[in-house]
C-alpha cells in the first residue's frame, strides 16, 4: 500500500479481521462441542448430509430475497438442511433403505440440486449471485462484523443448550433402550441433538463451506476422544481443538489472499487429529506401542 492515508483503512480492516476471527473461533469451538454427540451417537455422517443440503436453501433464500444477506441465507440453509434430514427419516421408514445408503442418496442428490441452483444463478449473472460460490468452500474475508457476532451468538446458544441437557444427552447416546425404558423421550432427544448439529453446520458454512464443514463437527471430537475417557472433558478438548483449527484457518487465509478458509481449517484439524492419534496417553499409537513391548 503506497497510499499515504492508508494507515487508518488498514487499521480498520485489521479490526474487522479480528472480530471475524473471534466469530469464526466461536463457531469452531461450538462445532467441536456439539459434534461430540454426533460422533458418540455414531451419526457422524448425518451432519454431512445436512451440510451438503444447506446449499439448496442458501440459493433459494438468495433467489427469494435477491440479496446476499448472511442471516437470511443461513436460515435458508438451516431449513433445507432440516428438510434433508426429514427426507432421510422418510426414506428409512417408507422404503426400508438402510441408513448408510439413505444418507449417501440424500447427500449427493441435495448437493447436486444445490450446485445446479448456485451455478445457474452465477451463469445468469444475477447481481450479487457470484458470491454464493463462497458457501462451497468457505470464505471468511467477506464476513462483516455483524455477521461474525451473529455466528458467535448462535454457536454460544447451541453450546449452552447442550450443556444444560448434558445428563440426558449422555444417557440417550450411551444406552437408548435403558433411556427409553426409564421414561426419557429418546426420539425427541435424538432430533434435538441432530438439530444442534445442523445449526452448527449452518453457522460453520461461512468458515468451511458446505463440502468441508462436516469435518468441523467430526474431527475435533474424534481427536479429543483420544485424550480422555470422560464426556465433559471430551467436550472441552473438542471445543479447544475446533477453536484452534478455526483460528489457524482464518489467520492464514487473511494473510495469504485467494486461499479459501475451509480447507485450511480442515487441514489444521487433521494435524491435531494426527498428533492426538500418535501421542495421546493410553489410547495413542505410541502409548499402545510401549505397552506391547
Amino acid at each position: 500500500m503506497t497510499d499515504p492515508a492508508g494507515i487508518e483503512p488498514l487499521f480498520a480492516i485489521s479490526h474487522n479481521t479480528l472480530v471475524v476471527a473471534c466469530g469464526v473461533a466461536a463457531v469452531g469451538c461450538g462445532a467441536g462441542v456439539i459434534g461430540c454427540f454426533g460422533v458418540l451417537r455414531k451419526r457422524a455422517l448425518v451432519g454431512d448430509a445436512a451440510a451438503h443440503a444447506t446449499l439448496v436453501g442458501v440459493a433459494l433464500a438468495f433467489l427469494a430475497t435477491g440479496r446476499r444477506d448472511l442471516p437470511v441465507l443461513l436460515v435458508g440453509g438451516f431449513l433445507s438442511g432440516l428438510a434433508a434430514l426429514g427426507v432421510l427419516v422418510l426414506l428409512r421408514v417408507f422404503t426400508r433403505t438402510r441408513e448408510d445408503a439413505a444418507t449417501a442418496i440424500v447427500l449427493s442428490v441435495s448437493f447436486g440440486l444445490g450446485i445446479t441452483l448456485v451455478s445457474g444463478i452465477t451463469a445468469r449473472g444475477i447481481p450479487g449471485g457470484a458470491g454464493l460460490e463462497q458457501f462451497l468452500l468457505g470464505h471468511t474475508a467477506a464476513l462483516t462484523t455483524a455477521d461474525a457476532i451473529l455466528l458467535a451468538t448462535v454457536s454460544a446458544a447451541a453450546v449452552l443448550l447442550l450443556v444444560l441437557s448434558l445428563k440426558e444427552a449422555t444417557l440417550v447416546a450411551f444406552d437408548p433402550s435403558f433411556a427409553a425404558a426409564t421414561g426419557w423421550p429418546v426420539a425427541v432427544m435424538d432430533y434435538f441433538l441432530v438439530a444442534l448439529v445442523a445449526v452448527m453446520v449452518v453457522v460453520g458454512l461461512p468458515a468451511a463451506g458446505a463440502v468441508l464443514v462436516t469435518a468441523l463437527v467430526v474431527i475435533p471430537p474424534v481427536a479429543a476422544r483420544q485424550w480422555t475417557d470422560r464426556v465433559p472433558t471430551m467436550l472441552l478438548l473438542s471445543g479447544v481443538f475446533g477453536l484452534a483449527s478455526a483460528v489457524f484457518g482464518v489467520a492464514v487465509s487473511a494473510v495469504v489472499p485467494r486461499l479459501a478458509t475451509g480447507p485450511l481449517v480442515v487441514l489444521a484439524a487433521a494435524c491435531i487429529f494426527a498428533v492426538s492419534f500418535v501421542v495421546a496417553p493410553e489410547r495413542g499409537w505410541w502409548a499402545r506401542h510401549l505397552r506391547k513391548r
Binding site: 450411551f174 444406552d175 475417557d229 464426556v231
Partner: peptide
C-alpha cells in the same frame, strides 16, 4: 446393546 468404549466411568 451398548458401546463399551463410550467415554463414561463405572460410577457414571
Amino acid at each position: 446393546t451398548v458401546d463399551w468404549d463410550f467415554p463414561v466411568s463405572v460410577s457414571d
